[in-house]
């Protein structure tokens, strides 16, 4: 590989005169200028302008869409809130209704019970009074009849008729005696 002389080769190569990396031919430069300016004009008019307009329009459209979506969301949220409030109100109302109904029922029950009690009491009192009255009437009647019979028996036995005063006095005494027994 000693004959493989890279250095020599490079030396040979570097003497090559065509290779001028800084070569800048004027015609290529002018051509570049014309092509670039022409391209800029054509693209500016038929490409960049409509592209930028289109992009801006789309950007605006997207921004508008987002805004209206946000607005719709806000509206939805507020109506949901209102609905929820309404629901909560209805719930409370229902609870109040139930509570009211319950208390009404309780009151009605109370009232009915009281009335029934009263009625029962009254019936009992009346029955007691009736019994009392009947008892005293019976006692009186018994006393009167027994006095009468006793008087008639006695007058029959005694043979004389008692005076009116003696008669009343006798009844009184026998009633007392009867009641005391």
């Amino acid at each position: 590989m000693s004959q493989f002389a890279l250095n020599e080769c490079l030396l040979l190569a570097s003497s090559d005169a065509t290779a001028n990396p800084l070569a800048a031919p004027i015609d290529l430069a002018l051509w570049t200028l014309v092509v670039f300016l022409g391209l800029m004009f054509v693209l500016g008019k038929y490409a960049w302008k409509p592209i930028i307009e289109g992009l801006n329009a789309r950007e605006k459209g997207i921004a508008d869409n987002i805004e209206s979506a946000a607005r719709a969301q806000e509206e939805a949220a507020s109506s949901l809130k209102a609905y929820e409030a309404k629901m909560a109100g209805a719930h409370d109302e229902a609870a109040a209704l139930i509570a009211e109904a319950r208390s009404d029922a309780a009151a009605a029950k109370e009232k009915l019970m009281a009335e029934a009690n009263e009625e029962a009491n009254r019936t009992r009192q009346k029955a007691l009074a009736d019994v009392e009255a009947a008892k005293s009437a019976a006692v009186r009647e018994l006393a009167e009849s027994s006095v009468d019979s006793a008087v008639s028996l006695a007058s029959n036995i005694v043979g004389r008729s008692l005076k009116k005063e003696d008669h009343a006095k006798l009844i009184e005494e026998s009633v007392k005696r009867f009641a005391g027994s």
């Binding site: 038929y46 490409a47 960049w48 409509p50 592209i51 289109g54 992009l55």
Partner: peptide
């Protein structure tokens, strides 16, 4: 880019 402009437009 003229094609692209037409598309975007």
């Amino acid at each position: 880019f003229v094609w692209l402009a037409k598309k975007i437009k």
